[in-house]
Each structure stands twice: as C-alpha cells, then as structure tokens.
C-alpha cells in the first residue's frame, strides 16, 4: 500500500495502517532521533513519541506542502530536540553536518521521492565552508540557539547570524533549484 493510502486510512483511525506505516519508517525515524540524542534509550522514546504524535495529528500533514518523508523527518527531529532540552543535557556535541560512518537513512526508503535532491543537498553540504556547516550542525543537531552557539564557540552573535544566514540561504537555493531540474 502506498503512503498516501496508509495516511488516508490512518485519518480514519485505522490502527493496522498505522502499524504498517510504523514498520516502514521506524528505522528512518530512529536514525534521526539517534543522530540528535546519541543514545538508544532516548532515541527509542523519541521514535515512539514521534509515531504517537503522528497518530494523534495526522490531519496536520498536508501533502501539498511537501513529501511525507520530509514532514516525518522534521517531526522526528523537532521531538528529539525538545527531548534533548527536557533532559537538560547535550550528547557529545556534533559539529559536523554529515557523518562518514554510515549511509544516510533516506537512502533506505523505497519511495523517497526527494532522494536525488537529498543527494544534491549532501553534496552541497560537503562544499559548505566549515565554519558555516558548524553553526548549522550545532543548531540542527544540538538544538542550540544562536546566542548559545556564540557562547559555545566564543564568537560574536553577529558572526553566528551571518554564518547561519549565509549557509541556510545557500542550502535553500540549492534545494529549490534541484527541485526545478
């Protein structure tokens, strides 16, 4: 069954469809949670909370605003960041946007419509200046505010803002231009 069919069934409170979607995306969500939280127990709690949230709020998914996998990835990451803050701890801070030790989780999805775009995004990240990638990584995986990053790196807040703005604009432009190809 396609994702769209499962989502329609979930909107009708079909628990079997919900479990099918879980099976399909559990590794994907867990990978994202683990990347942020850095330990198995917290990452599994985040995995369960993400799917529970999905079950409760499936109506908030709007297919016209983007692919389901993208929406789910963002949901998982935000829940992981919230959990990180609740625990009031940070795992070993990740200052790299990409890891070399494993394949990106999106490459394991069968129906990942944006796979090519994500590959392009990966290539662009590899070419970002290190200091720009660093501030994005600290905010994206560490949930750090711009002020916290400035404090952590001991650099002016304005510098953090400039680096972040520049990096995000580059990434967004590249993401959108790859969408138009």
């Amino acid at each position: 069954m396609e994702d769209t069919q499962l989502i329609s069934a979930i909107k009708q409170r079909d628990q079997t469809a919900m479990l099918q979607l879980y099976e399909r995306y559990a590794d994907y969500v867990y990978s994202i949670a683990y990347r942020v939280l850095g330990d198995q127990e917290s990452a599994e709690e985040c995995l369960q909370d993400t799917f529970w949230r999905l079950w409760q709020r499936i109506d908030q998914f709007d297919a016209t605003r983007g692919a389901f996998a993208t929406w789910l990835a963002r949901l998982a990451r935000n829940i992981a960041i919230d959990r990180l803050r609740q625990m009031r701890r940070r795992p070993k801070l990740s200052e790299a946007l990409l890891s070399d030790d494993a394949q990106p989780t999106m490459t394991f999805l069968e129906d990942w419509a944006d796979r090519e775009r994500a590959e392009n995004l990966r290539a662009l990240i590899e070419n970002l200046p290190a200091e720009q990638a660093q501030v994005i990584a600290l905010s994206f995986y560490g949930g750090m505010s711009q002020a916290e990053i400035a404090d952590y790196l001991n650099i002016p807040l304005g510098t953090v803002k400039t680096r972040m703005r520049s990096a995000l604009q580059k990434l967004r432009t590249a993401w959108e231009s790859s969408d138009q190809k």
């Binding site: 994202i32 692919a67 990835a73 989780t105 490459t107 394991f108 994206f140």
Partner: peptide, 12 residues
C-alpha cells in the same frame, strides 16, 4: 522541506 531533507541525511 529543506530541514526535512537535512534530517533524512542522518546515518542509518
């Protein structure tokens, strides 16, 4: 959508 794509680059 950009950030969703970024999250999906997490190691599997």
């Amino acid at each position: 959508t950009l950030l969703g794509g970024l999250a999906a680059l997490a190691p599997h």
